[in-house]
Amino acid sequence: MAELAEGDMAPEVSLPLGGGGTLTLGDLRGRTVVLYFYPKDNTEACTAEAIDFSALKKEFEASGASVIGISPDSPKKHANFTSKHGLSLDLLSDEDLKAANAYGVWVEKSMYGRKYMGVERTTFLIGSDGRIRRIWRKVRVKGHAAEVLQAVRDLGV
């Protein structure tokens, strides 16, 4: 599949929520969506990112945006992660990697010379029309949630 670009329609996903139930991206049409992919619950950078997005949730909502995190972790791990860190975000479980593949974030990575497949930390800003407005690839966590919030406000999506 070709890499997604700004202006493309966001791929439809329907995934289990950490707290139970299922969320379908199409159900959020009419709202701006911040969809952020991250590698793994309870790791240092992923925890910091989730806490940062959670801390700004009310500001995102006031700007008309929903924030949703996606990782390959199970719904049970998401529920524990949410509880442990007092998160207020919806976290979706992508155990079969359908969403990661559809969004092009399941990639070959390298650490200490070892190559492996994993989720590339990436954020998609999806407009109320379902089109991708902005993409942040290979995200650095520090300040990222605030940068995305500013983009939501700037675009007025």
Rank of each mutant, 00 (worst) to 15 (best):
M1N: 13
M1F: 07
A2T: 15
A2S: 15
E3P: 00
A5M: 09
G7Y: 10
D8H: 12
D8P: 00
A10E: 10
A10R: 07
P11F: 04
P11L: 04
E12W: 00
E12Q: 10
L17V: 02
L17H: 01
G18A: 06
G18H: 03
T22Q: 09
L23N: 06
T24V: 09
T24P: 00
T24C: 04
D27Y: 02
R29H: 02
G30I: 09
R31L: 11
T32F: 02
V33H: 04
V33L: 07
L35M: 08
Y36M: 05
Y36I: 08
P39Q: 08
K40C: 07
K40P: 01
K40E: 12
K40Q: 14
D41Q: 03
D41R: 09
T43G: 07
T43W: 05
E44L: 13
E44M: 11
E44P: 11
A45C: 09
A45K: 12
C46V: 14
A48Y: 01
E49H: 12
E49I: 06
D52A: 15
F53I: 09
F53C: 07
S54H: 07
A55Y: 02
L56E: 03
E59R: 13
E59M: 06
F60R: 08
E61I: 03
E61W: 04
E61F: 00
S63F: 00
S63G: 10
G64N: 11
G64H: 01
S66C: 09
V67W: 03
I68D: 00
S71M: 14
P72N: 14
P75D: 09
K76P: 00
K76Y: 15
K77F: 12
H78E: 12
A79I: 09
S83C: 08
S83E: 15
K84S: 13
K84E: 14
K84W: 07
H85M: 08
L87M: 08
S88V: 14
L89D: 08
L89I: 05
L92K: 13
L92T: 14
S93Y: 14
D94I: 13
D96V: 15
L97N: 08
L97V: 10
K98E: 10
K98M: 05
A99P: 04
N101I: 06
Y103K: 09
Y103E: 11
V105I: 00
V105L: 06
V105S: 05
W106C: 03
W106D: 00
V107Y: 01
V107W: 00
E108V: 12
K109G: 01
M111H: 08
M111V: 02
Y112F: 08
Y112I: 02
R114L: 02
K115A: 10
M117D: 03
M117R: 14
M117Y: 09
V119I: 15
E120H: 06
R121L: 01
R121S: 02
T122C: 12
T123A: 13
T123P: 01
I126E: 03
I126S: 08
D129T: 12
D129Y: 05
I132T: 04
R133L: 13
R137P: 00
R137Q: 01
R137Y: 02
R137K: 15
R137S: 04
V141C: 04
K142Y: 01
G143K: 15
H144A: 04
H144S: 05
A146I: 00
A146W: 04
E147T: 12
V148N: 06
A151I: 03
V152N: 01
R153Q: 15
D154S: 13
L155S: 10
G156D: 13
